[in-house]
Design a protein around this nucleic acid. Sequence first.
RNA 1: GCCCCGGUAGCCCAAUCGGUAGAGGCAGACGACUUAAAAUCGUCCGAGUCAGGGUUCGAGUCCCUGCCGGGGCACCA
Length: 857
Amino acid sequence: MNEHDRIPSDEPAGYDVARIQEKWLGVWDELKPFSSNNPNDKRPRKYVLDMFPYPSGDLHMGHAEAYALGDVIARYWRQQGFNVMHPIGWDSFGLPAENAAIKRGIDPREWTYANIDQQKTSMRRYGASFDWDRVLHTSDPEYYKWNQWLFLKMYEKGLAYRKDSWVNWDPVDQTVLANEQVLADGTSERSGAIVVKKKKTQWYFKITDYADRLLDDLNQLEGRWPSKVLAMQRNWIGRSIGADVDFVIEGREEKITVFTTRPDTLYGVTFMVVAPDSDLAAELVDDASVEVRASFQEYLERVQKSTEIERQDASRPKTGVFLGRYAVNPASGERIPIWTADYVLADYGHGAVMAVPAHDQRDLDFAIKFDLPVRVVLDTNATQTTTIPVLELDENGQAILPEDLPPLDPISTGKALIGDGRMINSGPLDGITKSNAIKKIIVQLEAAGTGRAAKTYRLRDWLISRQRYWGTPIPIIHGADGELVPVPEDQLPIVLPPTEGLDLQPKGQSPLGAAEDWVNVPDPRDGSPALRDPDTMDTFVDSSWYFLRFLNPNDDTKAFDPKEADKWAPVDQYVGGVTHAILHLLYARFITKVLFDLGYVGFTEPFSALLNQGMVLMEGSAMSKSKGNIVRLSDQLDEHGVDAIRLTMAFAGPPEDDIDWADVSPAASAKFLARAWRLSGDVTSDPDIRWRTGDVALRRQTHRFLAEGPGLVESFKFNVVVAKIMELVNATRKAIDSGPGGGDAAVREAAEVIAVALSLFAPYTAEEMWERLGRTPTVAEAGWRKPDPALLVEESVTAVFQVDGKVRDKATVSPKISGEELEKLARASVGVTRAVGDKEIANVIVRAPRIVNIATR
RNA sequence: GCCCCGGUAGCCCAAUCGGUAGAGGCAGACGACUUAAAAUCGUCCGAGUCAGGGUUCGAGUCCCUGCCGGGGCACCA
């Protein structure tokens, strides 16, 4: 009878996934190994945070991956002796709840909190090592009270303001959207509707004040955030460096300022273009002729009717109208016409551009269409240096001048000259290079007071008001005199009114405006009748600071405790999907900097390190109802067990890569776990057996694993760690069956190390192994063992002998062998001698003890 | 158009500093155990690293060009 036959797998004591899960959930509840609430805990701290979920239905495969990976990190730091805070909460305000509520005629609270309960149950079953004493829901008044507090702080600082502007309007959800919520194709990220522009007075957070810091501080995160996310954030902020240039307008007191990245081309400015939907355009046509006014009106209406998709199509022919006004080129003194065209955006720069058709493709397209002059001011064929490149000589010794230089003729080629070169037709700038011209003209403009160095950003202010019910009410009261009165802090929270009697159907106006009892309030200044602001906040406000609320989620006297923040924050390791690379992460970074400026926190970046997990796909594409390729998490858990699914997530590949569920095998994971578990039953030695007496080869492998494991986990190579555990399991199996046997001390040592390592990925199986090995109480509290340095020193290594880079022979040598000795061995080896033959040896490279490479001539 | 990431066995993926291309798994073949099957245990099978060029004693790894795939930004002056 084989050793491993002692416990047949069909007995109750066998590897019964359901029973094990049930059992250890109870033990963890009792012993609370994941608590981070002991004030006397002397261990160093780590804050490991998973992005909190939105409670739409039950957990899905994507959650399962994220929480499996986040949990590896949290459990790892506990093993390394840290007091780990690993909390979870719910991002529970938002439109899906409201839409579901409308559809079913129920309260959004009902839908939301039922889903939260379900997700919470699933998370517990999933064995995630969350600290269940730190939980929050953003839709609780106890939470959103502090959103309102934050808003008031922003308002005091002048960072929250109202503005009448063209906004993104979602015609399906009937609410405004932030720029960040409009996808590149002009549709709403939430409803998929084509976004249209509407002019509305809305609340904004002044994130543009922080644009430079948001951009520059990304450098601190280099190497600790995925480079992809850093690139996306830099792209989004989109800082442009250039100059503001003032243009005198005929018949107007004030000058018009334009922003340009190419002040060097100032002498090439032949017209000016103003955004049609800007106040400036309206003003400029105000006293123009009737015909001009009419054509402008017609054009403006046409532009306003077009969708974002149409407007962003750069290949569409240029349109525009002449405004009947002229400006003066400050450099050349030339009189230039002012046009309006929708390729100029009202809310970028100053809503007006100086057009240089020779050197800007958009301006050139426009000039060709409307027959406007084009003046080349940069010879893009001229070399940047004064030295002439080496030219070929003809038979007479004359240099052959290149004949294929492109003509400096943008009109006939239709291509703007955008390269580098030397300035021409530019008065004092003539002859110098583009970059020098930029410097020189800025100095000149500054001296003349008609321009200055300037930067501008792609980033726009954050539109935070929404015309929907299920969100945080904005704590502002509109006085009868039109004044905005902040709600006094002691009157917070402003709790959402009950939904009874309220029509939540989207109508373009906040449903809260119809809640008579709620919206009518006395003016805090004098008690006169006044109205609450009926809008609610974007839910990204909720998630912009929630990581601080976990420090003391039940404190009703403050948003968070700065002393706790000093201890725990910033978050040491943040884990979540790359879908939030711009929105959530940018907003959280912004709010953190505001809180820093207000003195509430002592750091300027909220997340010290970021891990993005990939998506879980099915047969090459994202799971979706329409594709009919959804894999249900609960089915997978029922079929294979929690541990097998978690292990599959970790083993599938690098965390940031997508996992195609069709490519991985949860059944194989389950098989492996059973195999590992079986080891624990085959260990026959006593728990206090002396390690050092065990089989040396197995011990070496075990200790090499102990030495390698931490570095692999810390660099997120979870798939490699799992592979190493598999190796160790295989070696231990072999030691039991055909080696020293189950009673050997090294076998016990290896099995225990496997249990500890496996607890990162498969906590239930690991606990069960640990217990069967006679250890108590939980493997979750067991530490990662220190490797014995003596066992890490290799006894022998394989040295490779190459001739001209090809392996010709090998030898087993001591790792301490000297270079001279190794070279001697190499030269004497049969393979090398044969390969060298009678060739002359040119060079011998020796890298003891690994390699000798002999180069021949 | 600009920017970022990737391309290694049939498939998923490993490969500290440039130093023997293979750790692990899936799939496949064979064997042991079994009346048989499942389960289990074991053995075996496999590419020269997308293509081309360069640097080097030596390149999957560094550099250049191209191809393919994924992603971000884009009428942003």
